[in-house]
Structure formats: structure tokens, C-alpha cells
Amino acid sequence: MNETNATTETTVTATEVVLPGKVEPSGLRPVQRELPAPTTGQALVRVESTAVSFAESAMRRGRYYGQPAFPFVPGYDLVGVVEAVGPGVAGALLGRRVAALTKTGGWATAVLLPAADLVEVPDGIGPDDAETLIVNGLTAYQMLHRSAKVQAGQTVLVTGAAGGVGSVLVQLARHAGARVIGTASGRHHAALRELGVEPVDYRDPELASRIRELAPDGVDAAFDHLGGASVSLSYRLLNRTGTLVSYSIAAALDDTRPILLDFLPLLAKLAFWNYAPTHRHASFYDIWAGAGKPDSAKREAFRARLRTDLTHVFGLLRDGVLTAKIAARFPLTEAAAALELAESSARTALGKIILTP
């Protein structure tokens, strides 16, 4: 690729939303910061869309494993346009809409990122629609196809089927030809039925019996985001060769203990089930697994896998196989209200909560 010296010698003023410590959403602080010109291998991205995910709710409580020390800027992913690049970066990237998985830093109007971490968004896909599929689409696609390897004709159980990850996962599973049973609040059942899901109320005291009625022999795969009693139930609902994929411990969000005291028992439980004399399999999905250190061979392989999978998911969106599910939109400066909605039991919309700088 042709390289460019299209760097900028002037600074850019970015608005960022800072998480100063373990605070309520109202404690988030918008600040302004001068960004320097991009250095070697970097790109300056003007953010068009970012979002609220479960991670931010956990981080503000200090309960996301591996989060940075306070204060920091949250924001697990973003979509934006490349406005400047540093030495060694292809000039063709300038002006392109890109997506990035950041873990933190996305709640800003502009960011400096390694150009190697950017994935181009296909023409015809808007920034908000693309944003719904970065962390959520990658998580759903990789759990379904890389972890559980779900096949046409199989039956899968998705807990939290109306959530950010769940609403993508059920669409991908249906596209793969799987039958989908999804747990969700009753207010979301009609929308889930439109997606081809057989919904079950997660608050039903006879939840296990209801799912057993739908899948008497058990499900081929279960995807659980709650942990605790829910992950045990999901495992029991597998058929004799089923696969369980756990990907969060949302049930422990409000716990006050150190996060490892909830996380390690879950990993031990999954490992124990794999050593049990059955043909079932259980695993924990981590979107950052295998990332390695920056500039390592592992990091390059991780980037290649991420780019391949996300590009495929974007293609499904462009082709109409997937529908972007947007629960609500807020200006970036109203991130506190967006986070409050994400954590509210009164939330009525299905999908992702978007922040628009």
C-alpha cells in the first residue's frame, strides 16, 4: 500500500467523558483534552458513534476484570472517520469510515488509535448501525461459530435474548438455521417472536420446566451472560452432547466483593464440568483471548481474526441478514443518562444504546 505523510502538526481538541472513580452515572465528567498529532503507526479518528455496554456498568463499580486505574475514559468500541495518519500508515485510510474495539477510550469526540486496530466499515452502512455490531457482533459471532460451532437444525438457548449481545446472537443463530429459545422480560416477547425466537420469561419461577417443555431432550448449545445460578441451570438444560458458553457474570454486578471472588469460582465450575464423565462441553468466552502483547505475533493473529469476523458480520448487516437493534440514542455529553437507562429495570427498548458525539 502507498504510504503518506498526511500528518497534522496542529493539535485537536477532543471532548471526553471521564469516569473518575466508583461513582453513580451522574458522577461522569465531560472534559476537554488536546490530542497531539498522530505518531508512527497511529491514526486520528473523529468519532461518529460509540455506545454503552455492560462493561461500563461494571467498570464504574470497579467490577470489570482488567480495567485500568481510575480516572479513565470508558467506551468499549467506536465508529468514526480517519482524519489524519502518522508516518507508516497507508494514505488510503484517510477519509474512510472505520470501526475499532477499544475496551476503554471510546467515549470521546476524537481518539488516537493504532491504525492496525482499525477495521473498515463497508460503504452503505451508517455509523450507528455499524456501532451495534462491534463488540456485540464479534461476541455473538465468535461464540456461535468459533466456540459452540452451532449447525443448522440444532436448538440453542440464549439468556438475555433482548440485550445487546443477545439480540445479535439470536439473529445469527436463526441465519445459521438453528432453532432459538430466548429468555427475556415479557415486554420483549413480541419483538423476539418477529426475529423467530421462542421467548420465555426469565422471571418465571418454573423457567427450567418451561424450557424443558420446548426442548425435552435438552438444547445443543446455551449462551449465558449471568453466571451464578443461571449458568448452572443453562448447563443442566444441555442435551448429552451440548455446549455451554458463558460470557459474563452480570448477576454479580452489584456484589461488593473483589471481582475475582465471583469470577474464579465460575471458571472452576466450568473446568469441573469439562472433567465430568459426560460428552458435554463448557467454556468461558473472552473477546480478548489470545490478544497477546502489542506488536507480538499473537496480536497480529488476533487482529486478523477480529478483522475477518467483523467484516463478515458487517457484510451480513449490509445484505439485510442482520438488522441493527438500537434501543436509544443520546448525545455523548448525556452519557450519564444513557448509562442510567442501560442499568434501569424500566428499560423497554431492545438492542444497543448509542452515544453520538
Rank of each mutant, 00 (worst) to 15 (best):
K298V: 00
V18L: 15
T10K: 12
L169N: 10
P122Q: 01
A152P: 12
V12N: 04
L28C: 09
D319T: 05
T241F: 07
F302M: 00
Q42A: 13
L138T: 10
D217H: 12
L253P: 00
A291Q: 15
A92Y: 03
A297G: 04
A116D: 11
A190P: 02
H145N: 14
V197Y: 07
A108T: 09
G137C: 04
D128S: 04
V85I: 05
V135A: 15
A276R: 10
T243D: 02
H188P: 13
V85P: 03
Q151W: 13
V82D: 04
D129P: 02
E194C: 02
L233F: 02
Y65R: 11
G242H: 08
D224T: 07
A178C: 08
A342P: 02
R212N: 05
S232L: 08
S49R: 03
E16D: 11
G124D: 03
A173N: 10
K352G: 07
E3K: 10
R307H: 13
M59D: 04
L332H: 06
G228Y: 06
R240E: 15
S57C: 10
Y141F: 14
E16A: 09
Q142M: 13
G137W: 02
E300F: 10
T104F: 04
E334W: 00
E56G: 00
G86T: 07
T8R: 14
V79G: 04
T15F: 01
F314R: 05
T7I: 04
S283Y: 06
E24K: 11
A282V: 01
A69Q: 15
F302S: 01
E24N: 12
S167K: 02
D220P: 12
L264T: 13
G62Q: 03
A328Q: 11
A336W: 10
P25W: 08
P294L: 03
D254I: 01
P114E: 06
T278Q: 08
A92W: 10
A184M: 11
T311W: 00
G95I: 05
